[in-house]
Simulated scan of single mutants.
Amino acid sequence: MKLKKPIYSNTSLTKSNQSNSTASGPDFGSLVLIATPIGNLNDFSLRAKQAIQEADILLCEDTRVTAKLLAAYGLSVKMESLHEHNETQRTEQIISWLNQGKKIALVSDAGTPLLSDPGYRLSKAVIDADIPISAIPGPNAALMALTLSGLPPHPYMFVGFPPPKSTARQSSFAILKAAERAGLQSTLIWHEAPHRLVDMLQDLALIFGQDRPAAVARELTKKFEEIQRNTLQGLIEHFTSIPPRGEITVLIGPKPQKETLSDDDLDQHLLEALKTMSVKDAAATISTAVHLPKKIIYQRALELSKIR
Score class of each variant (00 low, 15 high):
L33M: 11
T11E: 13
I133T: 06
H154G: 08
R169Q: 14
Q185I: 11
R212L: 10
Q202W: 00
F173Y: 15
L188T: 08
P164F: 03
L274Q: 12
A72Q: 13
S30Q: 12
F173S: 10
Q210S: 14
S81C: 12
R121K: 12
T63F: 02
S172F: 07
N140D: 08
V216I: 15
S16F: 11
W190A: 02
F208H: 13
Y73W: 11
L58R: 00
L271P: 02
D43T: 01
P153S: 08
I296E: 13
Q299D: 11
Q100W: 03
T11K: 15
L220R: 10
S76H: 14
L270V: 01
R90K: 13
P163M: 08
F224L: 11
P139I: 05
M1N: 02
T187S: 11
L13E: 09
G119T: 05
H291L: 10
V216P: 01
L184T: 07
Q268V: 01
F161I: 09
E87W: 10
V198Q: 12
T231G: 05
M277L: 08
S186M: 02
L146P: 12
K255I: 08
A282F: 08
Q170R: 15
G74L: 09
S76D: 13
S24Y: 04
F161A: 08
P113K: 14
L204S: 06
P132E: 09
L31R: 12
A174M: 03
E219C: 12
P37W: 09
Y120K: 13
T91L: 02
S241A: 10
E225I: 03
L151T: 03
S171V: 06
T260R: 14
E92A: 15
D117V: 02
P153C: 09
D62C: 01
R245V: 07
N40V: 00
P37E: 07
A214P: 04
P153I: 12
G209A: 03
R212V: 00
L235M: 02
E84T: 09
P37K: 09
P254M: 08
T14C: 04
I307H: 13
N20K: 07
P137E: 03
T36I: 05
I175S: 14
D128L: 03
K275L: 00
A55H: 08
I286C: 00
D62V: 00
S45G: 10
